[in-house]
Simulated assay, not measured.
Amino acid sequence: MGRGPVELKRIENKINRQVTFSKRRNGLLKKAYELSVLCDAEVALIVFSSRGKLYEFSSVGMNRTLERYQRCCYTPQDNSAIDRETQNWYQEVSKLKAKYESLQRSQRHLLGEDLGPLSIKELQNLEKQLEGALSQARQRKTQIMIEQMEELRRKERHLGDINKQLKNKLEAGQGSLRAIQGSWDSTPLVDANNTFPAHPTQSNSMDCEPTLQIGYHHYVPPEGSTVPRSVACESNFIQGWVL
């Protein structure tokens, strides 16, 4: 009993549809290969599945076959359109080339080269162009120099302010040093009871750390003092080597 005709419609069952696609795709690729071999034909086959997956076959190369297909599909009207577009591009290239040559010639003229073919009027125009360019260059140079001078003046003022601040700090420090030296000079070495006070660098408080004084201050007894010279020398020695 033979098979009946298969109704050509979309297979609703997803699994059956996928199985049928796989079988018939393989058969189609096999037939394309057999056709290219048996008949020496240039065959190209492109298949996209429902999921977007690509399957292809080409007997001589897909790009080569597609290019041949595009050449065969062009009509004379399309060829004329391409010719017109090519001609337009050729004219555009010619214009750009002429403009480029003109710019090169103008550059040589500005550099003082190839001035022989120029007429007097052209030379006068060239002279005006050079004068205008020179004037603009000088103006720009002057502007840059003025900006640099302003920047240097700002730096000078800033450094002057810093110098004044340092000078004020130095004068304040010197004033404090003079005050300390004045307090040392006003400290008597012998009090009214002919006793020797502590050295100015020492403190009466026991909380201060001990210091070592190397050398001694030369003590000269005042006029009319009853302190013997030997006691004065001894006080110099003791006061000079206080720990």
Score class of each variant (00 low, 15 high):
Arg153Ile: 00
Pro117Ala: 10
Ser119Ala: 11
Leu118Ser: 02
Glu131Ala: 11
Met145Phe: 05
Leu118Gly: 01
Gly132Cys: 07
His109Met: 09
Ile144Leu: 15
Leu130His: 08
Glu150Met: 07
Gln124Thr: 10
Leu152Pro: 00
Leu123Ile: 10
Ala133His: 08
Glu127Ser: 14
Leu134Ser: 14
Lys128Ile: 06
Gly116Leu: 14
Met149Ile: 08
Ala137Ile: 07
Ser106Trp: 03
Lys155Met: 02
Arg153Pro: 00
Leu118Pro: 02
Ile144Asn: 03
Gln124His: 11
Ser135Val: 05
Leu126Glu: 02
Asp114Arg: 12
Leu130Arg: 15
Arg108Gln: 12
Lys128Tyr: 08
Glu151Val: 01
Gln129Lys: 14
Arg140Leu: 12
Ile144Met: 10
Met149Ala: 12
Ser135Ala: 13
Gln107Lys: 12
Leu130Met: 12
Gln143Met: 08
Gly112Lys: 06
Glu151Leu: 05
Arg154Ser: 02
Ile120Gln: 13
Asn125Lys: 13
Leu152Ser: 07
Leu134Asp: 11
His109Glu: 08
Ser119Ile: 05
Met149Asp: 09
Arg154Trp: 00
Gln129Arg: 15
Glu122Gly: 03
Thr142Cys: 03
Glu150Trp: 00
Leu115Met: 07
Arg138Gln: 14
Lys128Val: 04
Ala137Trp: 10
Glu147Trp: 02
Thr142Ile: 13
Ile120Phe: 09
Ile144His: 05
Leu118His: 04
Ser106Arg: 15
Arg154Pro: 01
Glu122Val: 06
Glu113Cys: 05
Ala133Trp: 07
Gln143Arg: 10
Leu110Pro: 02
Asn125Met: 13
Gly132Leu: 12
Arg105Leu: 11
Gly116Thr: 14
Lys141Met: 11
Lys141Leu: 15
Lys155Val: 00
Ile120Pro: 01
Gln107Tyr: 11
Gln124Pro: 02
Gln129Pro: 01
Gly132Ser: 06
Leu152Val: 04
Gly132Phe: 03
Leu123Pro: 01
Gln124Phe: 07
Ser135Gln: 15
Gln124Lys: 15
Glu127Trp: 11
Lys141Asn: 13
Gln139Ile: 10
Gln136His: 12
Met149Ser: 06
Ala133Arg: 15
Leu152Gln: 13
Gly116Val: 09
Gln148Asp: 06
Asp114Leu: 05
Ile120Lys: 14
Arg108Pro: 00
Asn125Gln: 15
Leu110Asn: 03
Ile144Ala: 14
Glu150Gln: 12
Glu122His: 04
Glu131Phe: 04
Glu147Phe: 01
Asp114Gly: 04
Gln136Pro: 01
Arg153Trp: 00
Gln139Gly: 09
Leu111Asp: 14
Gly132Arg: 11
Glu113Lys: 15
Gly112Cys: 03
